[in-house]
Amino acid sequence: MTSYHAPMGGLPPQTRLMTGRAVFTEAYAFIPRGVFSDIVTSALPGWSQTKLWMIARPMTGFSETFSQYVMEVAPGGGSDAPEPEAGAQSVLFVTHGEVWLSLDGQEHELGPGGYAYIPAGCRWRLHNGSHEPARFHWVRKLYEPAPGVAPPAAFVTNEREIAPMAMPDTGGRWATTRFVDPADLAHDMHVNIVTFQPGGLIPFEETHVMEHGLFVLEGKAVYKLNRDWVEVEAGDFMWLRAYCPQACYAAGPGPFRYLLYKDVNRHAKLRGPGAFGR
């Protein structure tokens, strides 16, 4: 049975050493699980009985395409107007508890492993009707239309319903659960789950234009981030700007798995922030 790490909040005791693994560099940020305390949570307008950890947000000169929240909604909490930005698309991934999700009038119940893609302009509501807190990831990105390409439709699924696709010549030690067909150009972002079996690895330093958010759902590994090898475990978050070199070696006794965001399938912007055009 697959398990997903979800932060429990609270505050560390006064006796704990404050030295930890958190770091923010010119190429990546690393937010370890111990940082997910109540003192760094936020609230959102329009949401009731809800707190969140905002672990990624657009920042000029760093990572500019997406935001990512770790949400916790108490029983009876939720929102009838969750998204204030008309151009924003969303992905929700449930790690604990259950949520009731309404998409353009269609009702869905999502438990652990539940995944929803919500296109820009879709009317949606979310509530926790159970007796325990619900925890989920919320990834947001402004949708970039493409000439001649119709925008994608909403869908709801569960990780258990999708067979992971093994990377070539890896013997299944490195596989990706893809919620969207990579050949579907309607989508300008992918939010997938990457799984490494013990001994699996990324055998080269990936260096590419895509920005990344990687939340470790399960297991442990050592991860190459720019110049540094970092030991990571369930509950840690890695936030990579474009072209940050990365590699991985799954060194734990069980599977190493993370939720991965990346921007895809669009031209580089030649005008606007960070570009030369006017």
Results as ranks from 00 to 15, higher is better:
His5Gly: 00
Pro12Cys: 04
Arg21Lys: 07
Val23Lys: 05
Thr25Leu: 01
Arg33Thr: 02
Val35Thr: 15
Asp38Arg: 12
Thr50Trp: 12
Phe62Cys: 10
Met71Leu: 03
Gly77Thr: 05
Pro82Trp: 02
Pro82Cys: 13
Glu83Gly: 09
Glu85Val: 06
Ala86Ile: 15
Val94Glu: 11
Val99Gln: 03
Val99Arg: 01
Asp104Pro: 08
Glu107Gln: 09
Glu109Asn: 00
Ala120Ser: 11
Cys122Lys: 01
Cys122Trp: 07
Leu126Ser: 11
Asn128Ala: 02
Gly129His: 03
Ser130Gly: 01
Trp138Glu: 08
Val149Pro: 09
Ala154Ile: 08
Phe155Thr: 12
Phe155Glu: 11
Ile162His: 03
Ile162Trp: 01
Ile162Asp: 12
Ala163Pro: 08
Ala166Met: 07
Asp169Asn: 06
Asp169Tyr: 10
Asp169Ile: 07
Gly171Ser: 11
Thr176Glu: 15
Thr176Val: 03
Thr177Glu: 14
Asp184Tyr: 03
His190Trp: 00
Asn192His: 00
Thr195Met: 12
Phe196His: 09
Gln197Pro: 13
Gly200Leu: 10
Glu205Met: 13
Thr207Asn: 13
Gly213Thr: 09
Gly219Phe: 06
Phe237Ile: 00
Met238Glu: 02
Ala242Met: 13
Tyr249Gly: 06
Tyr249Cys: 06
Ala250Met: 00
Tyr261Met: 03
Lys262Ala: 11
